[in-house]
Computed example of a mutant assay.
Amino acid sequence: MESSRQQYIIEKQNELKEKLKHFNKCRKTWSRIDYVFKTLNTVVTVGITVATAVTGGLMLPIIVPTVLAAFTAVQTSSCGLIILGYTSKQKSDYKKKTEILDTYLNKLFIFFERSREDKNITIEELEEFNEILDKFDVEISSVKVKNS
Rank of each mutant, 00 (worst) to 15 (best):
E125H: 09
I121W: 03
T45K: 02
D93P: 00
R5H: 10
S3M: 13
N24K: 12
I121M: 12
L108T: 01
F23G: 03
E99M: 09
V50R: 06
K107Y: 09
L84Q: 10
K12I: 13
K144W: 05
N130V: 01
V46C: 04
K96D: 08
E139D: 11
E127M: 07
E127F: 03
T45R: 03
S92E: 12
E127K: 10
P61Q: 12
E99R: 07
P61H: 13
K119N: 12
M59L: 14
K89I: 14
N24H: 00
G57T: 11
V43A: 14
L68M: 11
Q13L: 06
I110S: 15
M59A: 13
N120G: 02
K89A: 09
Y104S: 00
Q7T: 15
K19E: 10
K21E: 12
K107L: 09
K135H: 13
S148E: 11
T103D: 09
T76D: 05
A73I: 13
T103E: 12
D93G: 02
S92V: 00
L108N: 00
N41C: 12
F37K: 01
P61L: 09
E2K: 07
Q7P: 04
K95E: 08
F111Q: 00
S77F: 04
I123L: 13
T45I: 06
S148G: 02
D93M: 03
K135Y: 06
E2A: 07
K89V: 15
K144N: 08
T42P: 05
K21C: 08
Q7D: 12
S115Q: 01
I9N: 00
E2P: 05
I82D: 03
Q13P: 05
F111S: 01
R32Q: 14
H22L: 10
R5Y: 13
V50K: 08
F136P: 05
